[in-house]
Amino acid sequence: MPLILNQADPIHWAAGGAIIAAVTLLLLFVLNRRLGISTGFEDVCSLVVRTRYFERASLCEARRWRLPFLFGLVIGGAVSAATTGGWQPTWALGMLDDALALGPAGKMAWMFVGGLFIGFGTRLGGGCTSGHGIFGLSNLERPSLVTTLSFMAGGFVTTQLLWKVVLS
C-alpha cells in the first residue's frame, strides 16, 4: 500500500525499525538522553504557560536537546516529501477522505479533538509510543508495558468502533 505522501512506496518495516533503534541508541550513548517525544509538548508549553508544573528544573534543563529534536522531526518530514516527488501543502487524509468527505474546517476540528486526547493522555501516562513503546519496552520497564498495552487497547477499540460501527 502506497503512503498518502506523494503515493510513495514505503521502505521495509525492518529498515524503519532499525533506523528508529539506531537513533534511540545514539541519543543515549552520545547525548545520554532517553528518547521521549511527548515531553516536548511540555517544553513548548513551558515557553509560554506560566504554571508551576512547566517551571520544573528537570523540564527546563532538557529543553536544549528536545526542542531541536522536535524541529528535526519537521525537517525529516519535509526532506521525505521533497525526495519522493516534491513538497507541497495538502489536505489529503487517505481512508478518511473516502469514507467521510470532510472539508478543511472539518479536518481541523477532527484533528484538534484528537490532539487534545494525545496531549492530555501522553502527559498523564508519562510518555508516548517513543518513550514507553520503544525506549521503555526495550529497557524492560513495567510502567512502560502497562502504558503501551493501554494505548494499544484504547486505539484498537476506537478504530474498530469508527470503522466497523460509526462509518460502516
Partner: peptide, 26 residues
C-alpha cells in the same frame, strides 16, 4: 493516560512524533 492517548492516536492517525513529521510533510 495510556487509554486516552490511544483514542487520540486513532482519531488523528498520528502519535506525538508523527504530528511534527506530518507538519514537515506539508
Amino acid at each position: 493516560g495510556g487509554v486516552l492517548f490511544g483514542i487520540g492516536w486513532s482519531i488523528c492517525g498520528m502519535c506525538p512524533g508523527p504530528i511534527l513529521v506530518n507538519i514537515g510533510e506539508g
